[in-house]
Design a protein around this nucleic acid. Structure first.
Length: 826
DNA sequence: GCGGCGTAGATGCCC
DNA sequence: TCTACGCCGC
């Protein structure tokens, strides 16, 4: 039994776990859990949290010593194992929460794990300081030890947009043509190198030569230097700097070795080389000491090879960690036999697997086979899926009505979404789109953040350049260029240069005055940083800088929404302790809240569907070229095909009860109609778990065999229908044009765009929800002055009505514009 | 400082 | 075919 781990010396700022006044030699307590666990043990009962685990899961939870690889198939209770394992470590007093390193890939996963652990151990564990994404843990390490790699603790995290702008500057500064050598492309190259853990000195000759006439390495080095002077990091650095820091400072690494008694990694199949190196460093232990590393993953769900993930990491685990125990979780708790059978048969076509086969022992009387459907073109596909959804909504064969929330359309590529959006808007069917640009990528949010960044981090030149003339202050290109030159010549940040320059007469009086005002403002705000509440400061900054006024004076349609977003930004700062903490959050976390009260079909890519599950899943677009995607095949050959197949596997295994696969004969690609072949994956589905849906449409007869030969799902007989005539197509076109002007016919039809910032293809964003523009002229069922209730904002009074959009003064949340469908009269 | 026009590019989007 | 972006002209 361990004792005394609370006196590890090196984290002064972090309160050591409280040590209860226990008798000498007694184990430390973690809240009341230990007591409960011991009581359970002493009474001969297993602790509650172990109840209900199957034997493999139990083994994965209880094998705490030594390296463990848990191969957890889709729907086999992976998260449960991870969280229970942590709960088990905690409640048996093997470690304090702060001694467990648990890494996830997404903030969402981290959040969910925290919540579930809290549930398991009765909420008695205050947080888990080292549970987070690779990147957020990287930030934490760098805030502590950044000076060892040349970063002060206030460093900024740049997002891809900042990075591209910075690289562009460097390319230009090097006298290169930034059109011939696009910054975006080079940013991508740097990202690839960093994923592999390569610093400028390490990159392969060929790579170095490939860009800017052989100056790739030089530019990469210049970029890294520039980051250092900016006191900034890109995402890759959040992994690479800690690696360098650990390598150069073995004593610090050793401290962390002592600290982290247990290491857990989720989604191990998605780790890239840099993450692997990072993990190896932290997982090292002196000979004879157990490496308590537990990696959880599924090689069959590795779908991020294109962004540097190395499936090899998981395939090689037993070699990397000698003596590793491999536990397979194959008992599936999610899907029906037919769905699992279809998925298993498909994925069996991949080579180089560790080999798992999912099974379920729950038989389901109305287990339906996976259904394959054919449509003539993508428009008909959207229509057919829409009908299927509405049918389920009305009630299935047994009369059961289904919620839209239990259905999802999972596409291979985001352009496929549009067709569904168009269709659902005309149907008035609620949907939500998940993915795409994020809240923090909105223009106004980025501007505001630039102000905050510069206040917290005066060396942040990128932020400075972003806002120096926003709002317009008459500090245009000329002024910025001379500031830039001045700063470069003296090797000081631009804000500092500005402060100096206003003391000289290098500038004309007008810009000089403007610049002087800016400099003084920033001085003032910096002075307020320490002892003003940060939300108040944020508001002050946006008001005094004239930024709020800029949007207030803006007459464009987006302006009110942007002001609303700024308010939302400030509101969301409330839950953070400081402005710095908030900045970090926004840099790392980009989640948008979903409105769970809205019943809506989810539309998302297969990639973003990983980890989710739905009763009914629609998988459209199973055609050669789209799925598997041609580019994947071209770029990565067989490996690419296998990754595509894993993607198909992920798609099918998202379904709990019903899985509908669709393919079309004609799809518009880059604007051109092309006739398409059914995906080879269709032929890889087992006939005994799949049915070919009889076509409901007038379109007659795919699957008649013959013709093109190879596939069971052969192309439709082009003469069996009249949809291919130019006239028909024109009619279709007219129809969709007409609907485009009049979509949102059903008042209150709600569309939620999660993660989408700027207005989507249509409509506008009101309070984060993209709302179909309604041309409805029917009188509102509400009247000005009505007292209403909104699930998120509470009670309020209607102060204005415009179609189906209400302006409401909420008692607590202030003025909001919401759709009438979201409120009810009280 | 904007709007109009021409051009390139058009998987995936985590942190 | 659609779009996003950069450049140019006012």
């Amino acid at each position: 039994m361990t004792t005394g781990y609370d006196d590890i010396p090196f984290f002064d700022e972090e309160p050591a776990p409280r040590k209860p006044p226990a008798a000498a030699g007694a184990p430390p307590f973690v809240g009341g859990i230990a007591a409960r666990a011991m009581a359970a043990r002493d009474s001969g009962r297993r602790p509650d949290y172990l109840a209900g685990l199957n034997p493999e899961q139990t083994e994965a939870v209880e094998t705490l010593e030594g390296p463990v690889l848990v191969l957890a198939g889709a729907g086999t209770g992976k998260t449960r194992v991870l969280t229970t394992r942590i709960a088990h470590i905690l409640s048996t007093n093997r470690a304090f929460p702060s001694q467990i390193l648990a890494v996830t890939f997404t903030n969402k996963a981290a959040r969910e794990m925290k919540e579930r652990i809290a549930l398991l151990v009765g909420g008695a564990v205050e947080g888990m300081p080292w549970l987070g994404t690779f990147h957020s843990i990287g930030v934490k390490l760098l805030r502590r030890h950044g000076e060892l790699v040349g970063l002060s603790s206030s460093f900024t995290i740049l997002d891809t947009d900042d990075v591209v702008r910075l690289i562009k500057q460097i390319i230009q500064a090097e006298g290169l043509d930034d059109k011939r050598w696009p910054a975006k492309q080079f940013a991508g190259m740097i990202d690839t190198w960093k994923n592999k853990g390569l610093l400028p000195a390490d990159i392969p000759e060929g790579d170095a030569r490939a860009f800017a006439n052989g100056r790739g390495r030089e530019l990469y080095a210049a970029y890294q230097n520039r980051l250092k002077t900016l006191n900034a990091c890109d995402f890759g650095d959040l992994l690479l700097h800690p690696i360098a820091m650990f390598r150069q400072n073995p004593d610090i690494l050793k401290d962390y070795h002592q600290r982290f008694r247990y290491i857990l990694v989720d989604e191990y199949q998605d780790t890239n080389t840099a993450q692997y190196m990072w993990l190896r460093l932290l997982a090292q232990r002196p000979k004879g000491e157990p490496q308590n590393v537990c990696c959880v993953g599924d090689d069959d769900q590795s779908i991020y090879g294109w962004r540097g993930a190395e499936v090899d990491n998981i395939l090689r685990f037993e070699k990397d960690f000698p003596g590793a125990k491999v536990i397979k979780l194959e008992r599936n708790y999610r899907s029906t036999e037919h769905i699992l059978g279809a998925a298993a048969h498909l994925i069996a076509h991949n080579e180089g697997r560790l080999g798992k086969t999912l099974f379920t022992d729950r038989s389901d009387p109305d287990d339906t086979k996976v259904q394959v459907h054919a449509s003539w073109d993508s428009e008909e596909e959207a229509r057919a899926i829409g009908e299927e959804i509405e049918a389920l909504q009305r009630g299935d064969s047994s009369g059961k009505k289904h919620n839209l929330n239990d259905m999802a359309i999972l596409v291979r590529a985001s352009f496929q979404m549009r067709e569904f959006e168009d269709r659902f808007v005309t149907l008035g069917l609620n949907y939500r789109v998940i993915g795409g640009p994020r809240f923090y990528e909105r223009l106004e949010i980025r501007d505001a953040m630039a102000y905050f960044r510069l206040v917290c981090q005066p060396a942040d030149d990128l932020a400075f350049e972003r806002i120096i003339n926003t709002p317009k202050r008459g500090l245009g290109d000329t002024a910025v260029r001379s500031l830039h030159d001045y700063a470069r010549a003296r090797d000081i940040p631009m804000l500092a240069a500005a402060a100096e320059m206003v003391e000289t007469d290098e500038m004309k009086p007008k810009p000089r005055k403007a610049l002087f005002d800016v400099v003084m403002s920033f001085r003032r705000w910096q002075g307020l940083l320490e002892n003003t509440p940060h939300t108040e400061l944020a508001e002050t900054i946006l008001d005094e800088s004239g930024y709020t006024d800029m949007w207030k004076n803006d007459k464009s349609a987006e302006a009110p929404g942007r002001l609303e977003n700024l308010k939302e930004l400030i509101r969301s700062m409330d839950s953070f302790e400081s402005m710095r903490g908030f900045l970090e959050h926004v840099a790392l976390v980009m989640d948008a809240e979903t409105n769970e009260n809205l019943d809506a079909v989810s539309i998302m890519t297969l990639h973003s569907a990983k980890g989710l599950e739905f009763d009914t899943v629609f998988l459209p677009g199973w055609e050669e070229g789209l799925f598997p995607h041609q580019r994947s095949l071209d770029e990565s050959g067989r490996a690419g095909l296998e990754e595509e197949r894993r993607l198909a596997y992920v798609g099918i295994t998202r379904a709990k009860r019903r899985c509908h696969i669709w393919f079309v004969s004609n799809r518009r690609i880059h604007g051109l109609w092309q006739s398409t072949m059914p995906s080879r994956f269709l032929d890889e589905l087992p006939i005994n778990h799949v049915t070919v849906a009889e076509t409901e449409q007038s379109y007659g007869g795919y699957g008649r065999g013959g013709g093109y030969g190879a596939s069971r799902f052969d192309k439709a007989d082009p003469f069996a229908n009249n949809y291919s005539t130019p006239g028909w197509k024109r009619a279709q076109q007219n129809r969709s044009d007409a609907t485009r002007d009049n979509w949102g016919t059903r008042s209150g039809h709600a569309v939620e765009r999660i993660g989408y910032g700027e207005s989507g293809p249509k409509g506008r964003t009101i309070d984060g929800e993209l709302v179909a523009k309604s041309t409805s002229t029917e009188p509102s069922k509400f009247a000005v002055g009505d007292r209403v209730f909104h699930i998120k904002f509470g009670n309020g009074n209607i102060s204005g009505i415009e179609g189906n959009k209400l302006t409401i003064e909420f008692d607590r949340a202030g003025e909001k514009r919401v759709l009438d469908g979201f409120v009810e009269r009280v």
